[in-house]
Structures are given as structure tokens and as C-alpha cells.
Design a protein around this nucleic acid. Sequence first.
DNA 1: ATGAGAACGGAACGTATAGTATCGTAATGT
DNA 2: ACATTACGATACTATACGTTCCGTTCTCAT
Lengths: 198, 198
Amino acid sequence: MPSPGNPSAGRPRSEEAHQAILNATVELLAEQGYSALTVEGVATRAGVGKATIYRRWSSKLPLVVEAFSQLPSLEEVDTGDLVNDLEKMLREYLHLFHASPLAAVLPSLIGERRHNPELSELLDPVLRGRRQPLNRALERAQERGELRADVDLELAADLIVGPIAVRLFFSGAKIHPRIVGPVVQMALDGLRAVNSEG
Amino acid sequence: MPSPGNPSAGRPRSEEAHQAILNATVELLAEQGYSALTVEGVATRAGVGKATIYRRWSSKLPLVVEAFSQLPSLEEVDTGDLVNDLEKMLREYLHLFHASPLAAVLPSLIGERRHNPELSELLDPVLRGRRQPLNRALERAQERGELRADVDLELAADLIVGPIAVRLFFSGAKIHPRIVGPVVQMALDGLRAVNSEG
DNA sequence: ATGAGAACGGAACGTATAGTATCGTAATGT
DNA sequence: ACATTACGATACTATACGTTCCGTTCTCAT
């Protein structure tokens, strides 16, 4: 059971072990990918018994999700100019994904979500949270009048992230940060063009 | 061994069993997802022995890739107008993916590609082939002068497919075909805007 | 101090599945 | 007829998830 009946009784859970497990999970995911990840491997790498892992996470999946959610996320950028904000954040986004091979796990998780409600409940909030800085930048731009009030912000976000995400996950190719500028420009120009027609 | 020494000796492989195996794979993937797919399950559903499966596919992965590649692909559309071509094809694309839950498998496969060269070699040609109709439409438009010669067609394809792919795989939400028009318009307007600046 | 409670690492266990091997049988070409 | 190969069925090996026990260690309450 995750929470003992009396929290101030008995030996407390080792925070050290907790972090060692998460770190080992991240390392092994990066090295060998998701399907090659074994709980035994994590336990060995972390210097921990399997029971210690299952005491904290009900199965491999929640462990992976928590390890994933520990990845550094986007920092919010607010320069007062939408293009600037988006370019900076997307460059950072690229950097994060190139620097951490753990990102390769995301498609695996996504793929299983549809048939695994438990995973969906675990993963969806994490994904939503990661898009927040982008959404907020778009909202601010809308408030400033940089984007018209009737622009669909979710569509805008997909339009901006989509091309980069597709390259990142599907083609698997490294992406020059240089590409971010044109992509943002195109997306915004496209949005403006459509909206100025109604 | 997949190819016997003398192809015209002995009992020939049953084409019926071959198709039954692929069909069973497709059905089970659609019903239960990738991680729940078992070779025994496929064999049972197909009314076939496991050996018959392993005689044709070296492991579960190639089987899944071939089942996936059997999905109906995009038909090429050539109306003489790029926007028209793209809208028609993307609507068909959406229809295909909404109609066949097997599409949910793609992210799983994509996720494992990075750490599995064998899978990469199997899957990459299939993915490339599926983008062909889109690429060809863009090439034709470029020849007609509808797109400038210096437009990066790969980037253009990512710009167009990206937003829809992200919604399809990541947000997992159903997508109104109505959204295709604006997305294509935005992407192309964006491309033109950037290119007319240099 | 001492004892209760809980987590610790380690190891054994049960179940499920990938993949291999072997059975007797069925189908094809020579 | 005979050689050859595939067939479905079944048993088998190896691996890995997840559970359960062990003796030990840590922390708090008394």
C-alpha cells in the first residue's frame, strides 16, 4: 500500500531510493528504449529490491510516466512579442528533446493510451501541463491584440508545434534550430491570412 | 527459413493461412492494442499453428509492420489545383485513420524505431511510401508554378501534415474534416508569405 | 532502553508470453 | 511410390512481470 495507516509510525520510505529508482529508469529508457526496460533492470541499476519499486508504483507504466514527467519542462518566455516568445520556447523545446533521448519514449506511451485508460489518466495531465507555456503565450498575444479574438488557440498551437513534432517523432531526424523561425512565421502568417478573410 | 531451397518441391505455403494471419493481427490490434497482442492469440484467431506464423515472419514485429502496411493507403489526387488536391487527400487521410483503429499502433512502432534498427529498416519504407501521394502533389504544384521553386517540399509536407498528425496521435481527439480546409490554407499562405520575402 | 510498525534489499515463486522444436499428417512435384 | 516441404498441435525453454516471503534496519512512542 502506498500510504501506511499511520504516517508517523515505522520506518519512513527512503527518498534516496525513490530518486535512485527514477534516475535508473530515465537512464535505462534513454539507453535501451521502452520495450527493453525491465523492472529488474531498474532495481539492479538503482541498487534496490523489486519490492521497493512496487511499493511505490503499482506497475511499470506509472513508473515510466513519473520518470517522464520529471524531465525538465519548458520555461515560460514573455518578451511581449509572440513571434519572439514562440521562437525562444520552440528552440528550447528542440534542445530538450535532442538532449534527452527519453523523449523517444513518448510515442510508445501515446500509442498505448488508447487501449489503456489507466495510462491515459496518468499521462494526460502531464502532457497538458507541458503545453501550458505555449498556450499562455498565445493567450497573452490575443489579449495584446497580436492575434484576433476569434483565433482558435488550440488550432494555433497544433499548427505551430505540429510540423516540429512530426519531424521529431516520425522522421526521427535531427532538426536545425534554424528551422524554428520560418515555421513560426509560416504558422502565424497562415493564421493571420485566414482570419483577415473572416 | 522463409525460402525453401527448392521452391518447386514439397507442399506450398498456404496463401489462405497467410491472409488469415494478417487479418487476425489487424483485428486483434484494433481490438486490444499493440502491447496486448500475443502471437498465440493471433494463431488461435487465425486457426493456425504458431510455427506457421514464425515460418513467415521472424518475430512479432515484422508481422505487425506487414499488417500495418496492408492498411489502405492514400489514393493520389490530381485535380490540377494544389489546395484542392491537399484538401481531398487529407480528408481521406483523416477518414482512413478514424475508420481503422489500427492506426493507434503507429506511435508504438515509431517509439521503438530509435532503439531497434531492424524495425527501422522494416517500417521506414512503409512510412515513406505513404507520404508519396502528398509529396507528388506538392511537386506537381511546384512544376505548375503554384509553389516557388525554392520552397522546401519536405518542410511544406511537415507543415501540412504536422498539425493534423499531432491532433490525431497526441491529443487523440476526433477531428472534424472541416478543419482540413483552414489548415491547408494556413500552411500554404504561410509558405507563400515567407517565400515572397526571399 | 524497549518494543511496535513499516520499509529495506534479496530471493523465491506463479503466471504469461516469445520463440524453438518435435510430433504425425497433408499436399505438392518428380 | 517417394522425397520434400508445409500444416496444426503440442511440449518445451527462457525471460520478465508482479507477488510474497524472509531476516534486517530504521523511526517513533512509551
